[in-house]
Design a protein around this nucleic acid. Structure first.
Lengths: 330, 330
DNA sequence: ATGAAAGCGCTAACAC
DNA sequence: GTGTTAGCGCTTTCAT
């Protein structure tokens, strides 16, 4: 491994001068610049980022803490984030928590001690106290889509409530009166907001809210399927179901088919997210587009602005527009 | 940030002793151990991993360099990898290259200078010379599924040729005589091996290989669609097409439907990988299961064995079994 | 069983 | 415009 000392030796200058030539943080004579650049070239020198990080308290790394990268929503978000970061030479730690509190906390603490410069967090169980460690270490945190509430934590998320309301209203407009919901885990902010939108729509249409019709999944296909089975077993079952995300909607479709019912005639289904698979299933899933790429990109920009002290104000809360996607499942 | 010095001060011992108490690398009296542990507890000390890495030349980090995390094959591989690594406290840098040589090379060089302890590489354009930097820095590399050929680089991959042969033979067994292939980019090892399997099957069945019937996509849906359009425009078009991966197969299905043809009657289609979407499309895609999770997990184990010098031999080449998945698209 | 001190590779006062 | 030196937080000789 070539170090800055090797370069200094070869160029016949001090380490300091090499450092400054590379960083441009202080003027260097033309002659010296040439010699240093030549030496760097000859030796193929690249600074050791660990050493740089230790010295500058800046690791050029951010952490992306999400439930599960195999949920197709997150890879898109990850690419959006990386798009924002790559120009600044930033790299990303990928952390899968499976939505479990201990894992969320463990990763959070872990990356703090790895001196990451910023954290993008999709917290499922975590609440505000959990991020104290990060804030104490002066590491900016952007929370996607959830329940962290702190004056220095920026929020970037879709308008879940509004999206869920539109979805439910669409079902109502199609003549459905008994509408179920398959929701994410309890206490998860996303779940609660989407539930709120569902309830709002019912209320506005003067439909009664029946708690029996709200079943919890955990944002995964298999639990969506089980939830739909529960709904189908109901004495007075719904004619339409709004699902908290597309994965659960696809699971719900599995259960409907198993019961030898037809979508949308016997059961209308709506999702949320508009992952690729939504347009692949038959019938294609009517859903609400959740702008994953943009969420990631904006989160990245917010983080960089905080890291470079370009923004030092109070919490920002960016609500990124969703879009209604009409297909064939209603 | 709490440092080891703070702990030493509080426990009334030297930094050295704190370090050794924590690492267990030399005996410590019961009394001292107690005091140190208490101090660690009180202060909430966690070692700074950057500093540790600088000193020990070990960053507790590996890099996963892949074409694109939004290709559903890779998230599964990523989780397999992380499953192998998490117990050792390892984190993963996620690098998306889009299969472009410059980006592959850039990330590779970059992570070398970040002192990663290991690299899992899915190289599309890269050849053996490109990894010299990593090997010179003594960083183990595991190559998934491709063309790196070096005595110290372990390979973990599916049996592409055999899988492709089985797929093509299945089409032949179903009476198809004119069989096309939509393949990945030229020069990519995976593409070439799958092509070889396709050709082997034709040969064994005494069918003539027609270069016109092999169209290149780039492992993405949109290009699969375009490739299928090309095949459909042929004067004497195929009755079945084997696709280099599921994403292209799904794109091919798009094109078949656009042409108002019916799968599998007018056109049989096979894929490769068995991503989740393969079972979601209609008709469900007949394909070859590619064991992404296992590939990632084994790659992780191989890496750790090299990192900890538990294995120091020549290249290992693990061929992980695939599985034929019969569905409805043939 | 414990500690002092050197040093991993880098940057940044502080000199000159 | 350039160099000397200290030190980021840690591990590890080498002493005792």
């Amino acid at each position: 491994m070539i170090t800055i000392t090797d370069v200094a030796l070869r160029a016949g200058v001090s380490k300091t001068t090499v450092s400054h030539t590379l960083s441009g943080k202080r003027p260097v004579s033309e002659e010296t610049r040439r010699k240093v650049e030549q030496a760097v070239q000859d030796l193929g020198f690249r600074p050791n980022i660990l050493a740089q990080g230790l010295r500058m308290q800046r690791s050029q790394t951010v952490a992306l803490i999400i439930p599960d990268i195999t949920n197709p929503f997150y890879p898109v978000l990850a690419r959006g984030l990386q798009h924002a970061l790559v120009e600044q030479g930033y790299h990303t730690f990928l952390c899968n928590t499976d939505g479990q509190r201990e894992q969320e906390q463990a990763f959070l603490d872990d990356v703090v001690h790895r001196q990451v410069d910023g954290i993008v967090l999709v917290p499922f169980q975590l609440t505000t106290e959990a991020i104290e460690g990060a804030l104490a270490a002066n590491i900016p945190v952007v929370s996607i889509d959830t329940l962290i509430d702190h004056p220095y934590v920026d929020i970037v998320r879709p308008d879940d409530t509004q999206g869920a309301r539109e979805a439910t209203e669409y079902l109502i407009a199609h003549g459905h009166r008994r509408i179920g919901m398959i929701n994410g885990a309890i206490g998860v902010a996303t779940s609660e907001r989407r539930l709120a939108g569902y309830r709002e729509a019912l209320e506005r249409a003067a439909l009664v809210f029946d708690p029996q019709l709200v079943v919890r999944g955990n944002f995964v296909r298999q639990e969506g399927r089980e939830a739909m089975r529960t709904l189908l077993a109901l004495e007075h079952r719904p004619s339409a179901v709004f699902c908290g995300n597309d994965l659960m909607a696809i699971g719900a479709m599995d259960a409907v088919r198993e019961a030898r019912l037809v979508i949308p005639q016997d059961m209308a289904i709506m999702g949320f997210d508009d992952i690729d698979a939504a347009s692949l299933v038959t019938p294609a899933l009517t859903t609400v587009f959740n702008p994953a790429y943009e969420l990631g990109e904006i989160a990245g920009r917010y983080l960089l602005e905080r890291i470079f002290n370009e923004y030092e104000g109070e919490r920002r809360c960016m609500i990124v527009p969703h879009r209604f996607i009409e297909r064939d499942s209603v």
